[in-house]
Design a protein around this nucleic acid. Structure first.
Length: 547
RNA sequence: GCCCCGGUAGCUCAGUUGGAUAGAGCAACGGACUUCUAAUCCGUAGGCCACAGGUUCGAAUCCUGUCCGGGGUACCA
């Protein structure tokens, strides 16, 4: 029970009232009221139906109002206001009863079963091991993890997967870069590759190789040894960074696998059978024009090397074949134009693809002293996630990345990061949680019994009631988060609830000489604690008991 | 050129899918701790929602065009 049920009830009653007036019922919409003095929930049905009903909105609203038969346990005081809104107020009894539900549900409050028995796969990060994870990757990493947590909270069995390419040109370039640095160390003139990886970490890897192999690789012509060493080292670093961020993958899938299994070739021939692939100028082309693109695109270069699209297609086919009920791909804006080809190709092969949801996020712009710096792994013009966590801590990093809409281009000024961390809104949430924990601890020290049956009729102050109103929106927030997979709505909700709590706190004492009132308020604040804790848990942020 | 995303307070961003008087945080200014945590609360100030049209009872939100920023458009990933 929560606000969702209240809305459902109002919705039903409204529909009945409308049909008794001979009006259509499918334009019923309920919104949180913008005018809190008028009500908690409002509807503009009368406004939208006024034209077809050929009546002034106010008159229509009043007619609807007179036909409404709402349960008095849930709703009271239906009023009509200005242009023609219907306003509903939730009864205080209903609000008080919800507290009991929240406290007894405890850790499970807000959990939904809409994904029960279903399997979901979330693919994210998927950065190639050519360098450390940067603040740019951070956005995707946290976004993906929180999306996974939202799914879990809604009952899905979730797997987190990391896909990477280690067969392509970038990895060879990486190997060449390491070799060049190695040759520098042994005193040879190594030619640094064009467009190679310039970061200091390449030197470190070369040094590590030297420490073990000394000069024995001096005349090595193959890059394999260097590349493999680099991949191993970099991947170890990536894993430790993710670990520190609190992100744990269930599987790492490697592009090479699809070559080894032969599924790359298989995909090409299957597409060829469908007439979607042809040869031209020594290359193999995919008819993306069939999918609505202006031009066809190359699948296999004339050099014989596939473009990234091909292994991506094989990989997606593999994911689809694994039979998930939901597949979520988290991609940066650079994939915006290309993923539809991959999905269309898979669809063309006869696979079901409507279970795939692709979430595109905009990039993080890095600023130094207010000036934009192009982040490049090759040029080593990046700030690593590790550096950021070092500076501001894990919770701030996580919150920073999910508090904004993924479509927004977010500016990240490294110069301001430290300063802003002290003012990061995540502390506001955690502080509310810690305050409550402290109250509960204090009450215990004072010998106040908790667990006795509270007299909830003592909860009647404005600050108390609006606090409960925020609490009962939590399940709806979780459901909305599932629908749109937008973590930032959860963050926004928690801000609201924390505000309501802090306001309550500054107006009223919980632990006083009044035993009955104390018991009732302890009950209230423990419900608040539950909601804050559960919300922070969804975001993967710690819930400190003291700060 | 074409396609996608964005433009909201000085700064960073929300805005519940078209609702009533556009909201937070930071920065500025003024108040509130002998009390369960002042990492908090209360107040003041700050806006042509990029710009111009359109759609309707009603637009920051939808449509068209323009400007600015980001991304894509490669036998790069």
């Amino acid at each position: 029970m929560s606000i969702v049920d209240v809305k459902r009830h109002i919705h039903e009653c409204l529909s009945k009232a409308l049909s008794s007036l001979g009006l259509e019922t499918n334009s019923v919409r309920l919104d949180p009221s913008k005018m809190s003095e008028l009500g908690d929930i409002s509807s503009g049905v009368a406004l939208s139906l006024a034209k077809s009903a050929k009546k002034p909105p106010m008159e229509l609203a009043e007619a609807i109002q007179s036909q409404l038969k709402l349960s008095e346990d849930i709703c009271s005081a239906v009023t009509v206001s200005k242009p023609g809104f219907l306003n509903f107020r939730i009864t205080t009894d209903y609000l008080r009863n919800q507290l009991t539900k929240i406290v007894s549900a405890s850790d499970n409050y807000g959990i939904s079963e809409s994904g029960k028995g279903q399997r979901a796969l979330v693919e994210f990060v998927s950065a190639n091991p050519t360098g450390p994870l940067t603040v740019g990757h951070g956005r995707q990493a946290v976004l993906g993890d929180v999306v996974a947590r939202i799914l879990e909270w809604n009952g899905y069995a979730v797997e987190r997967e990391y896909y990477y390419n280690d067969a392509g040109r970038q990895m060879r370039l990486l190997g060449e870069s390491v070799r060049a640095r190695y040759l520098e160390i042994v005193g040879e003139k190594g030619e640094f590759p064009e467009g190679g990886y310039e970061g200091e970490y390449i030197r470190d890897i070369a040094q590590k190789i030297y420490d073990v192999k000394e000069e024995t690789l001096k005349d090595e012509t193959e890059v394999t040894a260097f590349r493999d060493a680099a991949e191993e080292k970099i991947f170890a670093d990536i894993r430790s960074t993710l670990d520190r961020l609190g992100i744990h993958f269930d599987s790492f899938v490697n592009e090479q696998r699809f070559y080894d299994e032969g599924s790359i070739d298989e995909v090409v021939s299957l597409l060829r059978e469908k007439g979607l692939v042809y040869d031209k100028e020594g290359a193999v082309w995919l008819k993306t024009t069939e999918f609505g693109k202006e031009d066809d695109t190359v699948l296999i270069k004339s050099s014989g090397e596939p473009t990234y699209r091909l292994p991506d297609t094989a990989y997606h086919r593999d994911k689809v074949e694994r039979g998930y009920d939901l597949i979520v791909d988290i991609f940066g804006a650079d994939h915006k134009d290309t993923y539809p080809d991959v999905i269309a190709a898979i669809g063309a092969l006869g696979y079901k693809t409507d279970q795939i949801r692709v979430l595109i996020h905009q990039f993080v712009s890095l600023l130094r002293n207010g000036k934009k710096v192009k982040m490049s792994t090759r040029k080593a013009t990046f700030v690593t996630l590790d550096e950021l966590m070092e500076m501001v801590g894990v919770d701030v990093v996580r919150y920073f990345f999910i508090m904004r809409n993924r479509q927004s281009h977010l500016n990240f000024d490294i110069g301001l990061a430290e300063k802003e961390s002290d003012e990061n809104p995540v502390y506001y949430l955690q502080y509310a949680h810690a305050r409550i924990c402290n109250i509960l601890k204090y009450a215990e020290e004072m010998g106040t019994k908790s667990g006795g049956e509270p007299d909830l009729t003592l909860i009647k102050k404005d600050e108390e009631l609006s606090l409960i109103k925020s609490l009962i929106h939590f399940p709806e927030t979780v459901m909305n988060a599932l629908e749109n997979l937008e973590p930032q709505t959860v963050a926004g909700y928690l801000q609201w609830t924390a505000t309501e709590f802090h306001k309550f706190y500054s107006e009223h004492r919980v632990v006083t000489d009044d035993k009955e009132l104390t018991t009732a308020r302890l009950f209230l604040v423990s419900a608040v604690r539950t909601v804050l804790a559960n919300g922070l848990e969804i975001l993967g942020i710690s819930q400190p008991e003291k700060m």
